[in-house]
Write a protein that binds this DNA or RNA. Structure first.
Lengths: 198, 198
DNA sequence: GTCTATATAACGATAGAC
DNA sequence: GTCTATCGTTATATAGAC
């Protein structure tokens, strides 16, 4: 039995989705509780029937998203595919997340540095370290098995990939010219083979 | 003769540098005028002897930086080097800017989307379009002359490069393990030749 | 679950003394 | 160029009626 009745859970989710869109587009600090309430068609005070604070809203948004995302990563690294395939899957997974959870990704990208400074959001740094572990393992395995070049600076390559895939949330729009799959194809081509003429 | 005496210009610059660091590290909205004044060792009201508003501070920071940056870009594209060399120089220029003006770069990266929505900061969008023109020209020339692969999606490649070079401001620190020149070397290697084993 | 009404704090900014 | 003192506004959040 869920903690909340389906009706209230639905309303909560609606409000969280509205808040997420505003946080993603205007920033957490630039979004007032009045903005959220206005967009939801209620008054600001009414929000506090559902949530403790504005902070707890962004907290719930980020936690829900990250739990889902890292479960997906775990599946990829647990598979018995070769290193290059795993890298490709992990990259595609990120673009899929941008497609399906762009508000959450944008909030994480834009606010993690600032929010991470507070105790309450300490899990953001932990998730960050966890993500680094996943990628460093994949890249080291790739170099060892010969799938990747031996002269790579792995640490830098990790940052390059991490930054490259997530920053796409700034311009990618679902329903646009390119699907998230096509964007992932193009990115993987550049990442793996470069832009220079062979 | 300069508009301001050397002494006041120096104090202005000091205050702007202090503000820039705070804006870059905590965000514009998260930084209060009291934060800036505290860091400068004065009271918040005293800031208004030097500046009209908090907004005008970030305005001056961004404008000064962008004027300098685009002058440097102009030099690169005006040179008679080949496409690949120009691309390499433009990339190196960006990492140099991150090294020497990281606060300004960070502010632009983090706040441009939000600030750009206000009339006063309309020049941010113009500069963005200007930057796009520079890169699209370079990339198209690169494909035409055979320096770059013909199957590249130029628009996507432009975004890839733009995002990749600037996002490094999130982790690069002057005086760290790698110099900005070395980071640029590594990035160019990945960008041009990819990470896959040849 | 939402509204009315309001408490409380923080913020940007101003006026005038020094 | 900075300080004292404070104004006016906006923000988050609360209490109780409906």
């Amino acid at each position: 039995m869920p903690k909340e009745t389906p009706a209230s859970a639905t309303r909560r989710d609606e409000l969280l989705e509205i808040a997420a869109e505003l946080f993603a587009e205007k920033g957490f600090k630039n979004t007032t509780v009045r903005d959220i309430a206005d967009a939801a068609g209620i008054l600001s005070g009414s929000l506090y029937h559902h949530f403790d604070s504005k902070e707890s809203m962004v907290d719930e948004i980020l936690q829900t998203f990250q739990t889902e995302l890292f479960a997906a990563y775990d599946e990829v690294i647990a598979s018995d595919a070769d290193a290059r395939t795993k890298i490709e899957r992990a990259v595609r997974l990120s673009f899929e997340a941008i497609d399906q959870h762009r508000y959450e990704v944008a909030i994480f990208q834009n606010e993690a540095d600032f929010l991470g400074g507070f105790e309450r959001f300490g899990y953001l740094a932990e998730r960050n370290a966890q993500s680094r572990e996943v990628w460093m393992t994949l890249l080291n395995e790739g170099v060892k098995t010969g799938a990747l070049r031996k002269d790579l600076n792995i640490e830098l390559t990790y940052r390059f990939i991490r930054d490259t895939v997530w920053v796409a949330v700034r311009w990618y729009r679902p329903g646009g010219e390119l699907s998230h799959t096509e964007v992932a194809d193009q990115y993987l081509t550049i990442l793996l083979d470069g832009i220079a003429h062979a």
